[in-house]
Design a protein around this nucleic acid. Structure first.
Lengths: 242, 242
DNA sequence: CGAGAACTGTCGTCGAGGTGACGATCGCAG
DNA sequence: CTGCGATCGTCACCTCGACGACAGTTCTCG
């Protein structure tokens, strides 16, 4: 069910430039893994038009204004997508596994409209414009996957618009905590980072956390927030409690 | 096998259910018309999985929470995409020609996550989920067009996020005026409408317009704003003047 | 283990913008 | 012409959150 190139041994003339594990990653990562599984042939297409890249925290996949020659499919790690406006860094979105970056600029044929910087150790797959586009037309499954990945990001961003317009920072912080603590019950981010993610100041985030602490919903520490009462946190995120 | 277009006369057995003009519209409307032209076969595919619909101002294409059975391609007119939160209407986006609506929900298989209401007289093309999806996989060009349409909307929405986070209402109003007045030099919207589009109150919009009037950049009237100094308006939108 | 960097916690101040209110205008239907 | 609903122009009031400042805490690395 994963992209097993081994299933096509007869066609594997030469050793892949990309190892199997990478291909399996791609198959799992792209858009919604549960939706419309990629066929081995599709995966191998991807392997031919790009190559895996690794990035250390703080390094860039691409920067605003550069010629858009590639798009990236994120396999692991998180990326900040940001732009510089009045000499200031504005985080547009933080994205993770399964997201596709730089595709807008790539299809449009211009330059990247935002910068992409690794937050974690990031593994990604770089897809070259010139090699990709002709192939894409021949592999509808890949194209549909891509489409779904894009639509997800759109949905995410629309939710963000609503939040920004009408929710208080307290609710936004609560919402972020709900999202980020889902698995571990803990969030490992500095308050300043949370601030930039939400477009709020560090101080205000601190204040919101103080409020949540007061309500016995979270406990805060150095670069770490422990969620002790997810139920109530939900309520706060929905602004039914303040 | 209905809806063959004139380019395929030999195979055109019987009269179209969808007239030619509609097909031409589709070809022009979908995503970026200048990019990756649709082939006649692709257009005819679209004609087979959907049908044209017309909507009067104020009527809905679909509503939040309804089962997502179709997506819509807008041919002419403008649509407000909105959601209801705390009993209040929140406009997520206003979209026009070439936009595709309801696709997220359709691919995801759930219910629509927002409502779509016609602002103008709207002509759109309704595409049925069940008939579309199997076909889509066979027509990569259509799929890529769709992809491009989605990415455009994503870009638009990301710009909106930046505006909301860091721009003053004055700059946002200026920006909207720049966009909307491009062709005619005039904007025919009530101040209240501008308010909901920007997520601001009517009063604040009025105040911003008063400021612009004071700067001799616009003249305001009943449901109408005349831009007299587009140059300076640009400057204000970029927050270089306030 | 010690110093500097990064982070947290908390003030006071200030501007932007939401809300409610009210009168003045405009445009349309009768 | 007249009345009514929609729209505009402006007020006073108040809340939210940005910003600067600074002390205290935790990490990290030589």
């Amino acid at each position: 069910m994963t992209g097993r190139i081994a299933a096509f041994p007869a066609r594997g003339r030469r050793m892949e430039t990309v190892d199997q594990q990478h291909l399996a990653w791609i198959a799992r990562s792209f858009g919604r893994p549960d939706y419309l599984p990629l066929q081995p042939a599709d995966v191998s297409l991807l392997s031919q038009v790009g190559e895996p890249v690794s990035k250390y925290p703080g390094t860039h996949l691409f920067k605003e204004g550069e010629e858009a020659t590639s798009a990236y499919l994120i396999q692991t790690g998180e990326i900040d997508l940001y732009r510089i406006a009045d000499g200031r860094r504005r985080v547009v979105a933080r994205v993770g596994r399964g997201a596709v970056l730089g595709d807008m600029a790539m299809f449009g044929g211009g330059t990247y409209i935002s910068s992409a910087q690794a937050v974690d150790n990031v593994r990604a797959f770089r897809l070259h414009r010139d090699r990709l586009i002709p192939e894409l037309a021949k592999h509808p499954a890949v194209c549909m996957r891509w489409l779904v990945a894009g639509l997800r990001q759109l949905e995410e961003t629309q939710r963000r618009v609503l939040q920004l317009m009408h929710k208080t920072v307290l609710a936004q912080v609560a919402d972020l905590l709900v999202e980020e603590s889902k698995d571990t019950g803990r969030v490992q981010l500095s308050q300043a980072t949370i601030g930039t993610l939400l477009g709020a100041s560090r101080q205000t985030v601190n204040e919101a956390l103080a409020r949540l602490r007061e309500l016995k919903i979270v406990e805060t520490g150095y670069r770490s927030i422990e969620v002790t009462d997810p139920e109530t946190l939900h309520e706060v995120a929905a602004e039914r409690i303040s």
